[in-house]
Each structure stands twice: as C-alpha cells, then as structure tokens.
C-alpha cells in the first residue's frame, strides 16, 4: 500500500532463511521423541537411588530442545525469536535456583515443620518438649 520502509529488513531476512525440507526430518524427530519417552519411562521405573530426577530432567530437556528446534523451527529462525526463548528459559532456571537456594540454606526450624518430622527431636534437655518445638537445644539455658 504505502511506501513504508523498514530498518529491520536485515533482521527479517535472517529470520527467513528457511530450508523447506521434506517430511523426513519431522519423522526422524518424532521417532527420536518416542524413543526418548520410552527410555525415560524405563529408567524412571528403575527408581535409581541417585540422579533419577536429574536423568529424567536431562531427557526431558533433550526432548524439549528437539521440539523447540525442529518442530517450532527455532533451528531455522535466528535473531529475536531465539533470544526470546533462551531468555525465558534462563529466567525459569534462575527463578528455580534462587528459591531453592533459600530453602536449602534456611534456618532449619523455619522450614515447614511437618516436612521432616522424624529429624525433629521432640524433646531436648531443658525444654521437656512442652513448648513444643523440638528445636536444637541451645548451648546453655538459664538455671
């Protein structure tokens, strides 16, 4: 319609470098996702002592990356879209980290009291459990 020009042509062209390939790629990704799902279920059923969650999350991240890169064409689109996606992921991770730092390093009794009841000594010397808390016995109490 009108002759509006635009500064962002270059950015746009970068985003448009698409390679229209056949459905083979999608089928391959689909098979990979199915296989990974089976793998994560099988390993999940084994209930590893350590690292079960980490393994599950790694597999999930790989699957997620496959979906984002190929199904959502992030591999072809450069520039802003990638930044948006990566930034949002970064923020999710940082938000998780900061809150987990908190409960990981908090004064123990400031955590929900019912979370680890067995580790809470019900009575400590000088407190006779009456005041309930099962707090760590302080160094000394007044006589």
């Amino acid at each position: 319609m009108s002759a509006m020009a635009n500064e962002s042509f270059k950015e746009d062209r970068e985003m448009r470098q698409e390679h229209h390939s056949g459905p083979g790629k999608y089928v391959a990704i689909w098979i990979a996702l199915m296989v990974l799902t089976v793998v994560t279920v099988v390993t999940g059923r084994m209930h590893f002592e350590t690292g079960a969650l980490a393994l599950a999350l790694v597999i999930a991240s790989v699957k997620g990356a496959l979906v984002a890169l190929y199904f959502m064409h992030l591999a072809e689109h450069q520039g802003a879209s990638r930044i948006v996606f990566v930034t949002s992921m970064l923020f999710v991770v940082l938000m998780l980290l900061f809150t987990l730092f908190d409960i990981g390093t908090r004064f123990r009794p400031a955590l929900p009291s019912s979370s680890t009841p067995q580790e809470w000594p019900v009575s400590t010397p000088g407190q006779s459990g009456r005041y309930g808390g099962g707090l760590q016995a302080p160094g000394t109490n007044p006589k």
Binding site: M4, A5, D12, F91, V92
Partner: peptide
C-alpha cells in the same frame, strides 16, 4: 502500517514467541 508482508509475518512470529515466553513463565 507494515512495510512488507515479510515484516508482517516476522512481527506475527515474534509476537507469538513472546506470547509463548509468557506461557513458559506461567508454568515456571
């Protein structure tokens, strides 16, 4: 208000990505 169809599609796609980012943060 768009310079070309390409820019318009680019805008739509970028808008969608931003919207998806909000969805990701919602689930986060």
């Amino acid at each position: 208000h768009f310079a070309s169809l390409e820019v318009q599609n680019h805008a739509a796609r970028l808008g969608m990505w931003l919207f998806l980012a909000t969805e990701i943060l919602l689930f986060a």
